[in-house]
Design a protein around this nucleic acid. Structure first.
Lengths: 223, 223
DNA sequence: GCAAAAACGTTGCAGCAACATTACGTTCAA
DNA sequence: TTGAACGTAATGTTGCTGCAACGTTTTTGC
């Protein structure tokens, strides 16, 4: 990971750098709010470790600036004392976690991992192609990054087709997947769902379409 | 937190349950290695409290199994005597801490906190977004700085949803997290809790709402 | 090539399953 | 004994879904 360390105390900074570098992280070290502000413009850091006591003011000021500017990079605030008051201050200003000195290197590393993992949305995409993402874990369809609401049946149809992308899926296979074996259907319910699904995909600008293989089934592929 | 207690002695188990539940933790109680093994499959526990003397063997056997399988869930081993020999046994097998009976409730709680905090499975001490703060350590919800009293179940639902903010959480996931696996649910208890939780959030002016994804689950996000 | 039939597409709507809300009885700890 | 927490059930609400009717496209039979 690439981290931004904002800490002016020499000894503390040296110790932190040693630990972080040893863990194979890339660390940019700044000793003032002003320098840190500039470094943040690059927007390449996975997380920020921010001391409160800095030569040109309270670190929380920088944190507030970041949040006001919509910067959601995870920030761990280092506080000299573990006072309840100070703690709430940091949280109100948008800190993701705080750490009272002195602390163990292990604890910092654990917090860091936790905070970064939380900011990266849980990665469980089983399918992703073009601008279409299907998150099986959360049963969500995303197109160009934004969620497209699907009903349960639509999601089922989509998943079957996506799993066999580029391959024709028999009509019977779809019916069996969407309904039970025993559950027989006596209408064109499946067609309805495909129709509504097509519309949602098109409206959202998906780069995939569902083709009809007449007499056989359906097939999904990129456009 | 959600804990797994493996202890067959009735009196000891009752006392531990009382202490842990009072601290707003959810405890799954198993009385044998076999049952505990099954419970661990779900992989949802923040820590395990493991007795050595169990009807179907030494608890350390289960601990070894877990570590061999790559399970890093923190484990605190309870030993009948505080013999140096026994202690080393446990630590060699991958225990995170040990506790010799008899012990004080406070000591267990402190060890538990320490052990869980060290482990990286613990997401963070706090969750904060907008005017909503969740303090996992104290099991408190704060909105705009003031505490909103929640019941145990409400807190659990909230934590699960908050941990996956912006993502749909399957109904089954919530049910499994709030109740045990064996504990089957035959009513709309979950719906009740969601309903009451929604009301409390709204009344307190929270900037987050719980959305229903019909047929799939729930989703929490900022307004 | 043409008509007819078959297969599929689309859309409105009623029914019903899923969900929301609230009241009430039970349990259990203080 | 009292009150909080919780599960249960009754009742109200919502919107998914199957269905059917009608339109469109492709295939078939001649």
């Amino acid at each position: 990971m690439r981290l931004l360390l904002v800490e002016d105390e020499v000894e503390m900074a040296r110790a932190l750098m040693a630990v972080l570098v040893q863990q194979k992280h890339i660390v940019d070290h700044m000793t003032s709010i002003e320098n840190a502000r500039e470094a943040l413009l690059s927007n390449v850091h996975d997380a920020v470790i921010l001391d409160r006591q800095l030569p040109d003011g309270d670190g929380l000021a920088l944190l507030r600036e970041m949040r006001d500017a919509g910067d959601k990079t995870p920030v761990i605030v280092l506080t000299a004392q573990n006072e309840p008051g100070e703690r709430v201050d940091g949280l109100d200003d948008g800190a993701d976690d705080y750490l009272g000195k002195p602390f163990l290197a292990d604890e910092l590393m654990a917090r860091l991992r936790a905070v970064v993992r939380r900011s990266e949305s849980y990665i469980s995409k089983v399918f992703a192609e073009g601008n279409v993402e299907i998150d099986l874990d959360h049963q969500e369809l995303k197109i160009s990054g934004s969620v497209v609401p699907l009903t349960r049946r639509e999601m089922l149809v989509l998943q079957i087709l996506a799993r066999r992308i580029g391959k024709t899926v028999l009509r019977a296979t779809l019916e069996e997947a969407v309904y039970g074996y025993d559950d027989e259907i006596q209408s064109n319910a499946l067609d309805s769902h495909v129709s509504r699904l097509r519309r949602k995909l098109a409206d959202a600008g998906a780069c995939m379409t569902i083709h009809t293989i007449r007499g056989i089934g359906y097939l999904m592929k990129g456009t």
